[in-house]
Amino acid sequence: MRQNFASPRVGGMVALALVIALLPVGLSNNYFYDVAILVGLNAIVCVGLNLLIGYAGQISLGHAGFYGLGAYGSAILSSRYGWPPLLSMLSATLVVAALAFVVGRPILRLKGHYLAMATLGLGVIIFMVIATEDKLTGGPDGMSVVAFKIGSFALREAQLWYWVVGALLLAAVWLALNLIDSPAGRALRALHGSEVGAEVLGIDAARHKLMVFVISAVFASVAGSLNAHFSGFITPSKVTFLHSIELVTMVVFGGMASTFGAVVGAAALTVLPQFLTVLKDYEMMVFGALMMGTMIFMPRGVVPSLARLFAPRRRPEGERKPGSEGAA
């Protein structure tokens, strides 16, 4: 199975780069750019989250918290205190990394649903602080955020944002693929299979889990900061546990343990509501039904299920079940 990894990896990167490069042909106005940029930002979060969920087998229902800290950290430092946006973003990222590192160790000792609850709790606490401290954050109504500037150059045009986000997404995917293929990545996959088994083989499970947790938090934080500057406005609705669940849904929908699946999942679930809005009163019902239907008929997610369909000659890869908590 590992031998097969090399070619889809390069092929996938090239395909993704091509899609990003050619997509603007179909983007006839700023609204389409807007949606494409949101897809890219969500995809960055999902690529990170997929490392945690898909490869390390650790669930998180609190990543909207990291996303929100990145967004609000950058927004507050740049808009309230006049820091340069790039510096604000990097500072927010550092804070998030430090926080993930500190809380990661005790939280990641928990398993399965207990871990889900702990991360969910962490996310909700972050949400409450952001929604309550309205002098700093603007409270539930949110706050305006200054444009992203480097020196005197302001990043305003949707087209520019598109290329920046596209490049960052490629970088995120490249990082993730390399991590998965590194010795650390192999350790991760062993960990997913069986933690005790991995430890018997001399893998420091706790350290690896923590590393992936921090990386995924950083991805979320960076995407959050960028989103705040791109939108020019941020409200706590992006920090709710519902948004955390939405992010996990994107990962699972696209296909766990598939980096490109995470990208596809993010794209599908970001674009879908734009279609479904014409259904008005039926929108919620149809959205729920689509979610259920997809997961029932493609339990491994869209990308792995389709890959299997189109490549019948390949050995059915990855018979290991994602989400090992079921065996606990």
């Binding site: 609204y31 807007d34 949101l38 939108s231 406005f233 941020i234 409200t235």
Partner: peptide, 21 residues
């Protein structure tokens, strides 16, 4: 009419859609 689901970001995207599209 578009429904933003009480989400500020959706409100922004849909408004952009109304303006641009």
């Amino acid at each position: 009419t578009y429904d933003d689901g009480s989400d500020a970001e959706k409100a922004r995207t849909f408004s952009k859609r109304l303006i641009e599209q």
